[in-house]
């Protein structure tokens, strides 16, 4: 199993390397000098000289990339132009917020998506199935940022139940403010995710419901609940988990947008702010981190897949 994980990890390395090359090259593609991009246009000549030597910008280009990569791997992503703080510190304070939002939204997605999928797959083409399928199409088609605005209008502006802008509170130490602040962003992103979950789980369940083993299970007198719960669900989880893995890119985009709607202090919002002031070291750091999170979750999905399906050979 460990060897399998390591091998999957190795397959991500080319992607990460290429992506890191692209992120590093960003500085050189920006109009103006890379030094201007790294320290801001108002730097003094002394600062520029110091930075040039410290960052090795007088070295050959491949040496520069190598040194940047080594530094990044050691956690040195440079300093923010705006706040002068280390990029890694700025990012580290935002990661718990984004992870908390992502997990809460995934939970909402599962709690809504799985029952919807099971209910519609059990009676295909019924009125309920069509209504629920329409609902999934709506969950996927309504832009996240507009849904967020509608929820703010209803729950914050109209009913005054929840705050219109969400701050971050750790769920463990401040559960009550954490939940009130997390409710709307998690619902916004979660409903979108539930659309993905229900659409693909329904298709996966329908694919399994006509399999021979289902007929066997029924004919030997198993209760329908056991047929679905023990046999069908377990097999339908395989294509479903794959789809979830493939949809991760949408989740990541979703967190960036949701954080912007609710001015929630996560990684996505930090990136948007950094782009707004052209803080390139911070932009590079944020993108690198979001990508790393994305690849890590992708890997976890792969491992989960292998765990669910004993037929997959790890060797």
């Amino acid at each position: 199993m460990i060897a399998y994980i390591l091998r999957r990890l190795a397959q991500f390395i080319p992607v990460l390397l290429l992506a890191s090359l692209g992120i590093w090259a960003m500085i050189y593609a920006v109009p103006g000098s890379p030094i201007g991009a790294l320290v801001g246009e108002n730097a003094t000549p002394e600062q520029i000289a110091a930075i040039t030597i410290r960052l090795g910008l007088d070295q050959p280009i491949l040496v520069q990339y190598w040194r940047w990569l080594l530094a990044a791997l050691h956690g040195d992503l440079g300093h923010s132009i705006q706040s002068r703080e280390p990029v890694l510190d700025l990012i580290a304070t935002r990661i718990p917020a984004t992870l908390q939002l992502g997990l809460a939204a995934t939970l909402v997605g599962l709690l809504v998506g799985i029952p919807v999928a099971v209910a519609s797959a059990l009676k295909p083409n019924s009125l309920l199935d069509r209504a629920l399928s329409g609902w999934s199409a709506l969950a996927l088609g309504v832009p996240t940022f507009w849904l967020g605005i509608l929820l703010i209008l209803l729950f914050a502006v109209h009913l005054h139940w929840l705050p219109s802008a969400s701050a971050y509170f750790p769920l463990i130490s401040d559960p009550i403010p954490a939940l009130t602040n997390l409710a709307l962003p998690a619902l916004t992103l979660g409903l979108y995710i539930s659309g993905i979950f229900s659409r693909f789980l329904r298709a996966a369940l329908l694919g399994e419901l006509h399999a021979d083993y289902v007929r066997t299970a029924r004919s030997k007198g198993l209760r329908e609940r056991d047929v679905i719960g023990r046999h069908v669900m377990r097999n339908a989880m395989l294509p479903f988990v794959t789809i979830v893995g493939l949809s991760l890119a949408n989740f990541i985009g979703g967190t960036v947008i949701t954080e912007a709607v609710f001015t929630y202090p996560g990684l996505g919002r930090l990136l948007i702010q950094a782009i707004g002031v052209r803080d390139y070291p911070l932009i590079q750091g944020c993108i690198l981190f979001i990508l790393a999170i994305y690849i890590t979750i992708n890997l976890l999905v792969d491992v989960l897949y292998a765990y669910i399906d004993p037929r997959i050979d790890y060797h």
Binding site: L248, A249, I287
Partner: peptide, 12 residues
Amino acid sequence: LPGILFAMALIA
């Protein structure tokens, strides 16, 4: 690469 992330990087 998540599409929106790529688009944002390119626009940056």
